[in-house]
Every structure is written in C-alpha cells, then in structure tokens.
Amino acid sequence: MAPDTVPFVNPPSPSNADDPRIGSFPADLHVHTVLSACAEVEMIPPLIVSQALSVGLRLLAVTDHNTGENAAAMVEAARNTGLHVLPGMELQTREEVHLLCLFDEVFPLEAWQEEVFRRLPPLANREDLFGPQWVVDATGEWIRTEERLLAVSADISLEEAVVRVRRLGGLPVPAHVDRPSFSLFANLGLVPPGLAISALEVSRNFRPAEGFIRRPQLRNWPLLASGDAHRLEDLRAVTRFRIVSPCLREIEMALRGQEGRCFEVDWPAR
C-alpha cells in the first residue's frame, strides 16, 4: 500500500479524544445545487442550508458536476448559521470515475475549475436531455445559465486529478464507489496503487454487511457515507467527524485517526 494511504481497521475510539477542543461535526460532503443538471430546482443555497441545519449537519461540501461556480454562494448563505460549507466539485475523470474535490477556500477551487473547464469537450448542454444548469446567488436568485455541458468527462486522468487537487491543498475522495457506474471500482476494477487518497465515499444506501461481501477491498479503507443529495430530502447527517474545527486538515487527521480525531458512520438499518 502506498505511503499516502492508510490501512483501515476500525474507527478509533472517541475515548482517546483527550483534546477538549474536539467536538462532533455531523457532515455531508457530497451535495449538489441547481448548477448540476440532475439536481432538483429546490437545491438553492438558502434551502440547502436550512435543510442541512434541520437534519443536524454542521459541515457540508458543495460538489456540483465539473464546476464550483455555486460554491461561493453556498459559503455565503451558510455564514453565521452554525453550518460550515466546504467549496468543492464532483469531477468526472477521463475514466468516467467521479471524484469529490474538496477545498477549504473558494480560490483554489476556482483555479481547479479553470483547469477542468480547459479539459472539458466543447459541447453545449441540452436542457431537454440533461436539465438546466443554473448559477445562483446566496439567496437562490438566478444569475446565469451555464451553457457548457458539465455532465461529461474532463480529459484528466484520476491520478492527475488526485495529484493536482492535493497540490492545491484540496482533499480528493472517490465518490460512491459502491455504485455500478461512474465509480472507481466499477470503471477501474481496483484502487490504483499509490493513489494519494485517504478515504472512499459510499452512497447513502450502502450497508457494510452486504457491501463488504460484494467488494471485499472496501474493508481496507475508511468509508465516508454521503447523501449525494440531488433533492433536499437526500441530505444525510450519518457521518460524524470528531475534530477541532471543520477544515480539511482536521478531516484528514480524523480519516487517519490521529491525535484523538476520528469519525463514525451510522449505517442504514436493513
């Protein structure tokens, strides 16, 4: 296993959390807005924030397909609400693998988006086929319609994407790896050796008992459960980080079980 990956045994016990600053952060790190063609019209910043708070989330990452253009509006909408928003993107790589690219700030995401846009094919979105792609402000007001087709692969390999996101200070997480399409295991069969990732994301319906039988490789990885929300009701507060503050450095420590930081997941009952 590569030095940047960590074998996962069991979630470290919260009892070793002797740092009194550590608190519980229920988190959903995979949320779409109306900029994703497949998301419902209700996925606007103020409604996402209020729904997130009502289900008990303290941390959320906004991850539209191949774009981060609504991230700043989401950050603004959540300001002083008790919800922290990480700007992000759900990249579709050359291999059609979906990769969450999470950042602490908007500006590295903007740099990443610029690179991704350069590597997207020059195709226009067809709203009748895919749905509309709306850039909105913090109140949910329409600003403009994104014309480029975002529901497509950027010509970036998974490896290059992971390296570049890391270089920008971001956290790359392969998305919904239990799904039969657009996922690391379905498309590439196995985690490429040396890939600098520290966790994998599984979809909200994943159950370890069955999932580990279908894909035994999943046992070796910290697994984050997200809502992959395209509707408000998809938001989930099932992954809880025990961290000092809602930043990527703390999350990374929690994924590795370092210095009392850890995380746990409430898996769905059958």
Binding site: E95, E159, N187, L188, G189
Partner: peptide, 10 residues
C-alpha cells in the same frame, strides 16, 4: 478505450 494503468493489472 481505457488506457489506465489498471488495464495492465487486469
């Protein structure tokens, strides 16, 4: 059409 390293592995 895949040209990824995992093609060789598989």
């Amino acid at each position: 059409l895949q040209s990824h390293m995992n093609v060789v592995a598989v």
